[in-house]
Design a protein around this nucleic acid. Sequence first.
DNA 1: TATCCACCGGAATTTATGGAAG
DNA 2: CTTCCATAAATTCCGGTGGATA
Length: 354
Amino acid sequence: MIADRSVFDDTWSPDHLLHRDAAVDQLSSAVVPSRLQRRGQDVLISGPPGVGKSVLARHTLSQLADDAGIQWTRVECMGQTTAGIIREVLAAIGPRPARNTPREDLALSLRERVDEPLAVVLDEAAEVHDTKALERLADVEAISLVVVAYDADDWLAQAPRSIAARFHGQRIALDRYGVDELADILEPRVATGLERQVLSRQQLERIADDVAGVARHGIYSVLAAAELAVDRGHYTVREMDVDDAYDVAREWMRQAALDSLALHHHVLYELVREAGTISGEALHRRYETVADGVYQGRQRQPLSERSQRRKLAKLVEYDLIEREGASRDRSYSVLDEAVRSAYDLGVAVEDPDM
DNA sequence: TATCCACCGGAATTTATGGAAG
DNA sequence: CTTCCATAAATTCCGGTGGATA
């Protein structure tokens, strides 16, 4: 049933981006420097999660790299520091700079070494505002910026005025796909990733509708439906397989997020999951009691309460747990009980009355 | 209602780690 | 090898906040 799983990866992109022609054209003509300019124009790509902002940038720029020799690189800004972002850009055009190179030296060598036009894609760029990276990159004459953010106005409002002005007239707003559009996008993946005819066009349209035009969720749901069908011994994907696919797909997305985090996050996540819903206060107490056992024989040491709250904030940001109330009213709960830590933490309650 | 107390999260500070220079 | 100094992670400090208590 499943012929090629890689087709469903985030990094896979088809030969031609469907229903994004206008966006591809606009981005292409902006990024290519004209004869008079030292760099391409800056572009701001905005839109809700899962509609293909990053895919648009990656697809268009790698095509321009092939066709027009455009130099480009992409930087994931989430959780990055100023130095981290600049170091990524430097690594893309030459040797990776030493980890302890001073911030200012990094900015300096960036100005020296980028001597031909370079397009820098800043992904998840909301986070870039916590740093000075934007100013440093904007300082380099040959660098043009392709910013990927959720809300264009919000992002521009937080950017320094001189930099916001550079995006004037160069904005691409992507919206959720329509049902037909998203079904069109799923179709080639079914054609190459699955064996023939196991999923009908009607089923694709139904999936497209149910995921409300969010491409990533739709793509994972197709794979999940096929997997469920295999498990259940079906020869083709049935309605019941599709019914159950959405939750599985969402679970995969969350599981991947949890897997990418460190031990501390896993300990806290498991404590919340085991409790169902737990107050901030009780969570700190539980952590205190289990900490000795859990960290026994591991590299890491238990965290202070403040640091625990930092890790919890990260778990919320990653859509793994939910946080309600302020101050002493605070409570936490997990969003999907089926998502579990791969660590063997032995965090389970010994005393059910607690 | 007034007051108290413990949690929350921002900011400042300390600690851990590792590459480079002497 | 030792010293120096950079970043990132963790801790300390503290004013703000809201439930609990009288």
